[in-house]
């Protein structure tokens, strides 16, 4: 031990020198790091500030609208006739139209999406999965206006010819079916991610207890991936709520409180498209009403997204 002491001292001296060198460099490096930090922060702020200003803009315009129309009437009224006299501003027909379309779309997208995800994650051979997954994601990249066209000029005529001859040209059903198709890849892809992230060791544990593949899927993988799957459902529904093109083109412009999908309805987004694209003069009450409708939409998707976040966090607690 005694012999080692002088050597140790020598080492310490070299180290301080080295430290000084390092410190010099750190100063320059720190400046650079600071600059990078600042630039990235600015980029991050762009989206945050945009969101905040949109919300402020939306809310102030909405406030203006509610000075003319009582908020109770807006929330509980069952007639929406802003473009005719007598004007009625009851949001329920529009909300009902959106919900009708969402319900139909969910009936298509959630079961089929989950089944596709299950196939891809648990049943498909590796090669098939590698081929199908990108295809599925391409489907998610089709512009919604194309989907709208598809609903109006293909699905509706098909339904009218073979199933519902009395159905109106503009109807909730074909919009539902096509929106369901549109969000299906999202459900399938996100659910598949959730299922694939279930550790293989859990599957092996179940197989080793004599479980069949179906039992492994339904009793181990699906429960373990439940929060991710729910999140994919919620995100997909949220996307469908905000979808504007398909409902504008195929579901019609008739605000109507109905549960019959064969009728023409109007969704929240479709109303905004109609008014902002038409010749309604700015500053009028009709014009302002689109902000109130926009706020309604915003609140609906906000609730869905918050729900999605909560569901995902629930899993992390596990």
């Amino acid at each position: 031990m005694q012999k080692d002491v002088p050597m140790l001292v020598g080492k310490v001296e070299t180290r301080t020198e080295l430290g000084r060198l390092l410190f010099k460099r750190t100063k320059r490096r720190r400046l650079k790091e600071g600059a990078i930090h600042g630039i990235l922060l600015l980029c991050g702020l762009v989206s945050v500030l945009t969101t905040i200003s949109i919300v402020i803009f939306l809310f102030t315009e909405t406030m203006g609208f509610f000075q003319e129309v009582p908020i109770i009437e807006f929330l509980t009224g069952t007639r929406w006739t802003p473009l005719f006299t007598p004007k009625h501003f009851g949001i329920l027909p529009l909300v009902g139209g959106t919900l009708l379309v969402i319900a139909g779309a969910s009936l298509v997208a959630l079961p089929i999406g989950l089944a596709s995800a299950t196939y891809l994650s648990e049943y498909a051979p590796d090669g098939v999965r590698r081929l199908l997954k990108p295809l599925l994601e391409i489907l998610a990249g089709i512009p919604t206006v194309v989907y709208g066209y598809f609903a109006l000029t293909f699905v509706t005529p098909l339904l009218r010819r073979y199933l519902f001859p009395d159905m109106s040209v503009f109807n909730a059903l074909s919009a539902s079916l096509v929106i369901g198709t549109m969000i299906l890849p999202m459900v399938a892809s996100l659910s598949e991610d959730a299922m694939m992230s279930v550790p293989q060791s859990l599957r092996e544990a179940a197989y080793a207890l004599g479980a069949t593949r179906f039992e492994v899927t339904t009793r181990v993988v699906l429960p373990a991936a439940l929060s991710g799957i729910s999140a994919s459902f919620i995100l997909a529904i949220s996307r469908a709520i905000g979808e504007a093109m398909i409902v504008s083109m195929a579901a019609g412009a008739t605000p109507k409180l109905t549960i019959n999908p064969l009728e023409s309805i109007q969704a929240l987004t479709a109303y905004i498209v109609q008014v902002s694209g038409g010749d309604t003069p700015r500053g009028t009450l009709e014009y302002q009403s689109i902000f109130a409708v926009g706020t309604t939409l915003f609140v609906m998707t906000l609730i869905m997204n918050t729900l999605g976040q909560l569901v995902v966090r629930y899993r992390e607690r596990y």
Partner: peptide, 16 residues
């Protein structure tokens, strides 16, 4: 597998 059970290298209880 029902009659020949298995215990693995890393404990792998189900999240239940």
């Amino acid at each position: 597998r029902y009659r020949i059970g298995m215990v693995f290298q890393k404990p792998n209880p189900f999240p239940k």
